[in-house]
Amino acid sequence: MSSSTDDRAAIWTLRGAVALTCVAVAARMLMYGGPVLSWLWLNVGWSEQAALRLEHGAAFGLMVCAPLLCWRKAWPAAALVSGWLLFATVAETATGTWHSELTPGALAARWLAPVALIALSMNKERPAEWLLRIGIAGTFLCHGLEAVFHNPQFIDYLIRGGELLAGTRVEETVATTVLTAIGVLDIAVALAILVPKRLRAVAFWMALWGFLTAAARVLYMGWGNWPEALMRVTNGAVPLTLLLLWSRPKPAEAEHETPE
């Protein structure tokens, strides 16, 4: 595969993931309301109507941004998307209850992916690569910590997953033990992806696990829960982008292999 093809695949993977995130976040806000509504209304003191207007406006804006991200000049849309996702992350941190201090890190792949997309579309590959590494490391590290702290939702995913996939009811103690192991593994790969080497196996595992755990939301509560799954698509797409970027030789290697 030529390097330009790999680059194109990487950038389109990221474009697609950020666009899907826009659609999912917008759908979730329209269907259930989002953290910005709760924060502005309950914590900041806005009227419900004003907070609703802002969220609905943002939802429509995100839906327009989704196709604009596929344009060659995607940076203004990507900047707006990143800004909103970061704002929503701050709101979720302020209104969240269970270990909400982990929220900015847990959602790092989501709000950093559009920033990486801006860098990538401007041919700033090295900063883009590190934004992607930091984003996915934050997501895996904080989800790993949530697993080690035994996030009850994760326990229920394992119990339900056992029932659906293996037809066996997993005991809570077993699920808790498995969750601890998953958490430790998540933390380990989060640290590994920050090693300044192209650890393709690590990126491959993160992509696989990221997509699988995003899909678990649909497995758990059915197709009606699709926004929850799609909102997490960057958890798999970000390491996949790294993998695609790393699929071609480093510049030095390329020079060595194809001397002019």
């Binding site: 009227s47 419900e48 109507q49 004003a50 907070a51 609703l52 207007r53 802002l54 969220e55 609905h56 406006g57 943002a58 939802a59 429509f60 804006g61 839906m63 327009v64 941004c65 604009l68 344009w71 000049k73 995607a74 940076w75 203004p76 849309a77 707006l80």
Partner: peptide, 26 residues
């Protein structure tokens, strides 16, 4: 041009979204 197109498109969408928001409490 990209900035202007994006700004116009997103602003229009945000405005439509805000105006079509369901009624909330005052």
């Amino acid at each position: 041009a990209a900035l202007i197109v994006t700004a116009i498109a997103v602003s229009a969408a945000v405005l439509i979204g805000a105006l079509t928001a369901p009624p909330g409490l005052g």
